[in-house]
């Protein structure tokens, strides 16, 4: 099983949108896919029309049976979701309290290995113990980034944090998200993509109204508008992601 984490220090950069669409593409390519909505906001759960409530709350980290029982099938073949829960806001406490020999997130991922080919982690924004655990267990950490100075600074921060904590097991890749072609700064950053290789992927996701409408339709764009521009961009991104893992 490959673990792909969509992570960023910043909120509102398109982590959940990318997770939902990439996961749908993975499932349509025949991979048994699970999305774990780790963000207490529960946006990924909302997109899949699943209640953001898990019986047992964060206890699922400790009990394998609870974890498996919490998984919900989505409306799409081969694509399942582990919904968000408001108790995930205390995830930090649980991870902080874990004893030396314990590895809560690692154990959970291990118990899902037999059942799925790809696990997507939709991470909450911020840098914390959870981020450390994600860097430790993910095969690929994908960072969506808006082409602005602050966002680019965020990527640098994340990479510094990763090196400082010696969490170099996972591969880190970033991609431009919410690219607005009317903005000069966005265009300038996109042009500099070659300088930022191999960290920065070639694919970029544009700021389009159809992406925003995903909230109304509550379904992946790749399912509702498979030939739309945004879907094509997500497809390109998926091709690069496959090549990276």
């Amino acid at each position: 099983m490959k673990v792909i984490a969509l992570y960023s220090l910043k909120g509102g950069v398109g982590k959940t949108t990318a997770t939902v669409n990439l996961a749908h593409l993975a499932a349509t390519h025949g991979a048994r896919t699970l999305v774990w909505d780790l963000d207490p906001q529960g946006a990924a759960s909302f997109y899949f029309r699943i209640r953001d409530k898990v019986s047992g709350g964060r206890k699922i980290l400790y009990k394998e049976t609870l974890l498996h029982r919490a998984i919900r099938g989505t409306n799409y073949e081969l694509l399942d979701l582990l919904p968000a829960d408001i108790s995930y806001r205390h995830l930090e406490i649980a991870l902080n309290a874990e004893r030396k020999h314990e590895d809560l997130l690692g154990n959970c991922i291990q118990s899902l290995r037999q059942e799925y080919d790809i696990l997507f982690l939709d991470c909450p924004p911020g840098i914390s113990r959870l981020s450390e655990a994600i860097f430790r267990h993910a095969d690929l950490v994908l960072i969506p980034s808006i082409p602005t100075i602050l966002s680019m600074r965020t990527i640098k921060r994340i990479i510094d944090f990763r090196s400082k904590k010696k969490l170099t097991n996972s591969r880190v890749r970033a991609f431009f998200s919410m690219v607005d072609r009317r903005k000069r700064m966005h265009i300038a950053w996109v042009k500099r993509i070659e300088e930022m290789r191999p960290l920065m992927l070639n694919a970029r996701i544009s700021a389009l109204s159809e992406v925003e409408r995903m909230g109304e339709q509550r379904a992946p764009l790749t399912a509702t508008h498979p030939t739309g521009r945004a879907s094509m961009e997500f497809r390109k991104l998926w091709q690069e992601v496959i090549a990276s893992i």
């Binding site: 029982r69 919490a70 998984i71 919900r72 099938g73 989505t74 409306n75 399942d80």
Partner: peptide, 9 residues
């Protein structure tokens, strides 16, 4: 006739 529930339902 096959009835298949969605996982978790």
């Amino acid at each position: 006739l096959q009835l298949q529930p969605c996982r978790g339902y």
